[in-house]
């Protein structure tokens, strides 16, 4: 089997906190000795309650957050040893999709400018035909090229954000709650789009969510986080059929069913 696209070994992150009250002078340990990997072509779901460290952990994969200790190997490279240029090359390969599409897009740029900037940032040029093809791959028409973010709905914007992530043909996409801000009827569109990308283009996913039902449907394996640690991991079917850790069990039991109790 080939090397995992992402491999984290015993990583920790301690945030320095202002003032030094309450949490103690040592700062706040957001991620505490976590090891985790994502195979190529796999979708790994990361679940856990708010503040458990999911976003922090996900952002270490492409060097947005620098771990206090431990190693992160992404696409076979040790992220800590990459220089500025190395990091940039890495970030071509590892794209991100955030929760709030409106906040993650520059309101002063058209969709075309947003997409072109991605290419330009990596010293590449692009053609209109390429951009149109890119938009079509996320289910948007060519007429979106000229639109500004406020001229599109949340779901459409999230498609643009996905298009931006896809522009440089990444191997790994980190999706941090990509559908939490979307309407229910639109949520499924984006989730299906991401699932198609995984199936058709073999892109790997690190999918952060607090919605267990979403994770269950759209990821192969699941890691459950609690207070900075991974307390349980395994194939998603197994985890949700027979959760072992009390934290996982609590999460499963709390998830309301869109189904009548029999």
């Amino acid at each position: 089997m080939s090397e995992p696209i992402l491999e984290m070994t015993d990583v920790s992150k301690r945030y320095r906190t202002a003032g030094g009250f309450g949490r103690g002078r040592k700062g706040f340990l957001a991620v505490d000795g976590v090891s985790l990997h994502v195979e190529r072509g796999e979708a790994l779901g990361l679940v856990g309650e708010s503040g458990s460290g999911k976003s922090t952990l996900a952002r270490m994969a492409n060097g947005l957050v620098v771990p206090t200790s431990g190693t992160v190997r992404t696409d076979g490279q040790d992220v800590a040893r990459l220089g500025r240029r190395g990091l940039r090359r890495l970030r071509r390969n590892v794209a991100m999709v955030f929760q709030d599409p409106l906040a993650s897009l520059n309101p002063l740029q058209t969709v075309r400018q947003t997409l072109e900037n991605v290419f330009r940032a990596h010293g590449e040029t692009t053609s209109t035909a390429e951009l149109v093809a890119l938009l079509e791959s996320v289910g948007l028409g060519a007429d979106y090229l000229g639109r500004y973010p406020h001229e599109a709905s949340g779901g459409q914007l999230q498609r643009v954000a996905v298009a931006r992530a896809l522009a440089l043909k990444p191997d790994l996409i980190i999706a941090d709650e990509p559908t939490s801000a979307l309407d229910v009827s639109v949520r499924a569109q984006i989730l299906n789009l991401l699932a198609d990308l995984q199936r058709d283009q073999g892109i790997s996913f690190l999918h952060v969510s607090h919605d267990l039902a979403v994770i269950r449907l759209y990821s192969d394996r699941v890691a459950v986080m609690q207070r900075g640690r991974i307390v349980e991991t395994g194939p998603s079917d197994e985890i949700f059929r027979s959760p072992q850790h009390p934290c996982t069990r609590a999460l499963v039991e709390a998830t309301p069913e869109a189904e009548l109790p029999a």
Binding site: V184, S185, R187, A188, L191, D211, L212, A213, V214, R216, L217, S236, D237, F240, R241, V252, T255, E257, A258, E259
Partner: peptide, 13 residues
């Protein structure tokens, strides 16, 4: 449609 678009935890079993 809304019901079909809402994920359920037991859906894959």
């Amino acid at each position: 449609g809304l019901r079909a678009a809402t994920p359920r935890l037991d859906a894959r079993l």
